[in-house]
């Protein structure tokens, strides 16, 4: 496959991911609305929101870092996408595998934090006290989530003896029984629990907590930058789901499967989030340091020996 074809597929994939992210977001808001007993937003609302945000005429500035924040976040999302194999096609050189390579799991872990760090810069320069509080919460919680998540990743890496996501996906092919979910239940359990934190739904939606700290890091962002952040958020949500799908749920062999699986993975966090209130930050961090961390250690211990 030529590099141009690869680039083409990657860009197309990004487009699909972005739109799927929007659609998924809208769908889940509709589902949430159903539980409440109403109809909720139209399916096309996120696109309109994006358009509207881009068409905002005035902007404010708080300095360079303020601009860079959303860019970092978008970069984090795209970076996560670039090194993530989306659809398993049998060969790493095939379409939809993007720039997956040996050791991309480590890069992905890095990119997960990347967006948050960028936001920290932007929100910090924004100067709003609630932005600062939000990003502080975000980083703290991220660290707490990352710890069990990394343990689970390492456990899986040990299990398959590779840091390549693509190879992990490949190893899970050939039936549901080959999924990490069944072959490494402790790592899977860790990921499933830590995932709640990574997805940012209740009870772990501390970063954007409207009745506590306005809308958190994004408080000062408006217009195009907000549009950037929304797009990045959608991509990140899909990519997180794709990551967990690839690691635990056997990857996807076509786009339909990907869509179904990411939907279900995302649904899990919505399912929990809908009926639980929000933790305080120390409660949240403590929670991750309890069960998921323990499971993560177990997963490593089991596969280390």
């Amino acid at each position: 496959m030529t590099i141009y074809a690869k680039l083409g597929y990657t860009l197309l994939g990004l487009l699909i991911v972005l739109n799927w992210g929007f659609l998924m977001g809208a769908t889940f808001r509709k589902i949430g609305a159903r539980v409440a007993g109403r109809y909720g937003i139209p399916f096309y609302q996120p696109w309109l929101n994006l358009l509207k945000n881009i068409s905002t005429r005035t902007t404010i500035t708080h300095g360079v870092m303020y601009y860079i924040g959303p860019v970092f976040r978008l970069t984090g999302g795209i970076g996560l996408f670039l090194f993530m194999p989306m659809v398993f096609t049998g060969t790493v050189d095939g379409p939809w595998t993007n720039f997956s390579f040996e050791g991309d799991l480590i890069l992905i872990l890095y990119f997960q934090v990347f967006g948050m760090l960028g936001m920290a810069l932007g929100a910090g320069q924004g100067g709003h006290p609630y932005s600062a509080m939000g990003i502080a919460r975000g980083l703290a919680q991220h660290a707490a989530v990352e710890l069990p998540l990394t343990l689970a990743f390492i456990s899986i890496a040990i299990q398959f003896d590779t840091f390549s996501v693509y190879k992990i996906v490949a190893a899970q092919q050939g039936g549901i029984e080959n999924w990490v979910l069944f072959t490494n239940p402790f790592a899977a359990a860790t990921i499933i629990l830590a995932m709640l934190g990574a997805m940012g739904h209740s009870p772990f939606n501390l970063v954007k907590a409207p009745n506590e700290i306005l809308i958190g890091p994004a408080t000062e962002f408006e217009g195009t930058y907000l549009g950037f952040m929304q797009s990045a958020g959608s991509i990140l949500h899909v990519m997180e789901a794709v990551l967990f799908m690839n690691l635990v749920f056997g990857g996807a062999s076509n786009w339909i499967e990907l869509i179904v699986k990411t939907f279900l993975i995302y649904f899990w966090s919505v399912f929990v989030g809908m009926v639980f209130p929000r933790f305080k930050i120390e409660q949240s961090v403590t929670w991750f340091f309890k069960v998921p961390l323990l499971l993560g250690f177990l997963a490593i211990i089991i596969y280390s020996f």
Binding site: A36, G37, S202, N211, M274, R278
Partner: peptide, 16 residues
């Protein structure tokens, strides 16, 4: 009171 802890569902039912 649930809503203050971000449990918005009850508020939705209650306000209805």
């Amino acid at each position: 009171q649930g809503g203050t802890f971000a449990l918005g569902l009850g508020v939705q039912w209650g306000v209805y």
